[in-house]
């Protein structure tokens, strides 16, 4: 949630009007098009940027999986404008019906594009806690996004229509089975993980950040456990929530596990030494600084979250 506030502040500092005059034309500024990372799997690589009027909050990796009968959207995008862009791109590749829209978790860069697909009347899938999370935060996110992009481009909160539980949900897109499962609190409290059986590609969404600073909004210990669970799926390749469109799963998990482990261990050490939160923010895991894009935008907040979680241990 921080990213929107920060981007907005920068714009305000630059004296740019945020009163809606930027709403038009933002979709055109969204980065590169869809890349086919496996047969029938299209991904837009989100740029390693903060949300801005220029990128219409199109910063996450989003795309679709195409079966013989139907299309599934793997995160609809970061705003209505971003979702509209995605829908238009999908339609350039296929005219099969868009029957499923998956919202991987509550963060707006992943789910605010859902409104662009309502015309397709799809099933909208999310973690069983996503509905509650969107009800609690949706309006707050919507307001921040509207401040940044204008009301028209921001879009509205779209609730999921089908809750995915801890037992797998299986969809069939036509000779293409998709397995979805709800994870325990990790990156957020509503992370959904999806596997495309045909390509073997895993979609861990924001449980996997590659090269771009992760943001911790759930549980540090939970996230480390979730990384073990991702490894245990045995999937070879994955589409991360941020970073390259496709990665080797095991190699990509390594740096993230390293960052989170250092964050945990050094925050614990800071607590044991009686250091204050401010001291922890300026010292913990700074050796990681050169390894992640947007580190300064997210790391201090991650330490704050880690400190708050671990100080009760």
């Amino acid at each position: 949630m921080l990213q929107y506030g920060m981007a907005r502040r920068r714009l305000l500092q630059a004296g740019i009007c945020l009163c809606g005059c930027l709403a038009a034309g933002t979709a055109a500024a969204v980065s590169a098009g869809l890349v086919e990372v496996a047969p029938g799997v299209l991904v837009r690589r989100g740029p390693d940027e903060e949300a801005s009027a220029a990128n219409a909050n199109g910063i996450a990796n989003i795309g679709c999986i195409i079966g013989d009968d139907a299309v599934l959207v793997t995160d609809p995008g970061g705003s209505l404008a971003d979702g509209q862009w995605l829908r238009a791109e999908i339609r350039r590749h296929t005219d099969r019906p868009i029957r499923h829209v998956v919202m991987s978790h509550v963060h707006p860069d992943h789910c605010f594009g859902a409104g662009a697909f309502l015309q397709d009347v799809p099933e909208i899938l999310g973690h069983y806690r996503l509905g509650a999370a969107l009800a609690a935060r949706g309006e707050y996110y919507q307001r921040q996004l509207a401040d940044l992009l204008g009301d028209a481009a921001a879009g509205l909160v779209v609730p999921p229509t089908l809750a995915v539980g801890e037992e797998e949900t299986v969809l069939d897109l036509g000779n293409r089975r998709i397995r979805l499962v709800a994870y325990a609190t990790a990156h957020s409290d509503c992370d959904l993980v999806m596997l495309d059986e045909t390509s073997g590609l895993l979609f861990p969404a924001d449980l996997l950040f590659v090269g771009r600073a992760p943001s911790l909004d759930g549980s540090l210990s939970g996230w480390l456990a979730a990384l073990d669970r991702l490894r245990a799926t045995g999937a070879m390749r994955a589409v991360p929530g941020h970073g390259p469109a496709i990665v080797e799963l095991d190699r990509a998990i390594g740096p993230l596990a390293h960052y989170l482990t250092i964050l945990r261990d050094e925050t614990r050490a800071a607590l044991a030494a009686g250091r204050t939160m401010e001291e922890a923010i300026s010292t913990v895991a700074m050796t990681e600084r050169d390894h992640w894009a947007l580190f300064d935008d997210y790391h201090g907040r991650n330490v704050t979250q880690a400190y708050k979680e671990l100080e009760w241990e």
């Binding site: 949630m1 506030g5 907005r8 502040r9 509650a132 609690a136 935060r137 707050y140 921040q144 409290d189 909004d217």
Partner: peptide, 12 residues
């Protein structure tokens, strides 16, 4: 800062 008083606590 921005929105600290209305920011959701993050859990139910």
């Amino acid at each position: 800062a921005s929105g600290g008083c209305s920011a959701p606590i993050g859990v139910s």
